[in-house]
Amino acid sequence: MAVRSRTGFYRQEVNRTVWEVPERYRDLKQVGTGAYGTVCSAWDRRSGAQVAIKKLHRPFQSKLFAKRAYRELRLLKHMKHENVIGLLDVFTAEIALDRFRDFYLVMPFMGTDLGKLMKIQRLSEDRVQFLVYQMLKGLKYIHSAGIIHRDLKPGNLAINPDCELKVLQLYLQPSRVKLFTRIILFHCLLFSFLIQILDFGLARQADAEMTGYVVTRWYRAPEVILNWMHYTQTVDIWSAGCIMAEMLLGKPLFKGNDHLDQLREIMKITGTPSADFVVKLQSQDAKNYLRSIPKVPKKDLRSIFNKADSNAVCVLEKMLLLDPEMRVSASEALDLPYFSEFRDTEEEMEALPYDQTMDNTDLPVEQWKRHTFTEILTFRPPKDGKETSL
C-alpha cells in the first residue's frame, strides 16, 4: 500500500523495507538483492521506459560501506558509454544533510545477464563475436578512464534482450511476415543483444570482510587470485578471455575448487610459467611454489576450440596468457580480424580520466556522507533524460 510522503514522493514497502521514491517511478517490483543493496524494476512515467532502481543497504553503517557507496555513485556518474551501465537519476527523499540516511540509484533496466542467458541457450558464433566486441568496447572505455573492473564475469554483463523477444515472436510466424522482412528480422535477431558492464571498479579485497561472501574465482586472473603482483588493467582481459571461452564451449574453461586448484586448471592450458616470469613476482611464496611444481607444456587452444573460427582462437591466445604484460589491451584486441565486420571505430570511444584522488582517502563516515550528498545535488541527467528528482 503506497503512503504519501514528502511532496512529490511516496512510500512503498518492498520486501519488508520502506522505499521512498519520486512519483514519476511506479510499479516497483524487486528483481534482485545482495550484500550491498536491493534492486527493483520500475516504470518511469516521465521517460515512458522501464528502469532499475537500486537502494543501497545502510550505506553509512561504516567507513567501508560509506566509501564504497560514494565511489559507486561517482563511478556511475562518470560513465557515458552504451556498453557500460550509467546513471539515469539519483535521489534521496531527505532535503537536509543531518537527516540523510539513504539514497537511490536509477539505471537502465536490462532484464537479464550473460550468465543467465548462457544457462538457457548455446550461443552461435556470430552472436559470440558481437557480444565479445561489445564487451571489449566497454572495457576500452573503462580502462581509458584509468579504472580496472577487477571482477568481470558473466553475471556482471547485463543484457537487454527485449528486441530479441519481439523479433523472435515475429520470426516464428512466417505466414504473417514477408520474406524480405523476415531476412531483416533474422539479422536483428542475431545481433539484437545490447551488453552493458556492471559493478566496474568496485571489487576490493575488503569485499569478503564486508559481506562474508567470497566471489567466484573462475574468471579471475591468476595474479589476482594469488596476489602475485601489483596488477593492471589486463586482469580484465584475462576475465574477458574466460568469458569468451565459456560462450564458445558452453561451459567454464577453468573451474577450480579452490585457489591452488584454480591455478592448476589454468596451467593445464597455459603451461607453467617461464623462469623470466617467476622472477617478476613480488610474493616469495608464489615464486617458491611455481619453482617446485612439475613443468607442464602450453596446450594448443585449437585442440580445445576445434569447432571455433581460427580468428576466434587467435583472440583467446592473446588474452589467456599467464604473463599479464603479454596480454593484449582492449584497444589492441578490437583491432584483431575477428571483429572487423562489426567495427565502427567512432563507437570505440575513450572516457575522460576519472579522478581517483578520494579512493585512497580515509575519512570519517560523516564526511563520506557529506561528499555523497554533494554528488547527488550536483548530478545532471544524461542529455536525453530529464532533470534529477531531488
Rank of each mutant, 00 (worst) to 15 (best):
E94Y: 07
E94A: 15
E94R: 12
E94C: 11
E94L: 01
E94N: 09
I95A: 14
I95W: 10
I95N: 15
A96D: 15
L97W: 11
L97E: 13
D98T: 07
D98N: 11
D98I: 09
D98R: 12
R99W: 10
R99G: 13
R99Q: 12
R99V: 04
F100K: 09
F100C: 02
F100A: 09
F100H: 09
R101D: 12
Y104A: 01
Y104H: 02
L105F: 03
L105I: 06
L105H: 02
L105Y: 00
V106I: 07
V106G: 07
V106E: 06
V106C: 07
M107S: 12
M107T: 12
M107E: 01
M107D: 03
P108M: 10
P108F: 10
F109I: 06
F109S: 06
M110C: 13
T112S: 15
T112F: 03
T112P: 12
T112I: 08
D113H: 10
D113A: 07
D113L: 08
D113F: 04
L114N: 07
L114R: 08
L114V: 04
G115D: 13
G115A: 15
G115T: 03
G115N: 13
G115S: 14
L117E: 10
L117T: 13
M118L: 15
K119P: 07
K119Q: 13
K119M: 12
I120C: 08
I120T: 14
I120P: 00
Q121W: 05
R122N: 03
L123S: 05
L123R: 03
L123H: 03
S124K: 11
S124G: 13
E125W: 00
E125S: 04
E125A: 02
E125T: 00
E125N: 01
D126N: 10
D126L: 12
D126K: 12
R127N: 08
R127Q: 14
V128T: 13
V128M: 02
V128P: 02
V128S: 09
Q129W: 03
Q129S: 13
Q129Y: 08
F130T: 03
F130M: 03
F130G: 02
V132I: 15
Y133Q: 10
Y133E: 07
Y133W: 12
Q134G: 05
Q134I: 02
Q134T: 05
M135I: 15
M135L: 15
M135Q: 08
M135K: 00
L136W: 06
L136P: 11
K137H: 06
G138A: 06
G138I: 02
G138P: 06
L139K: 09
K140R: 14
I142Q: 04
I142W: 04
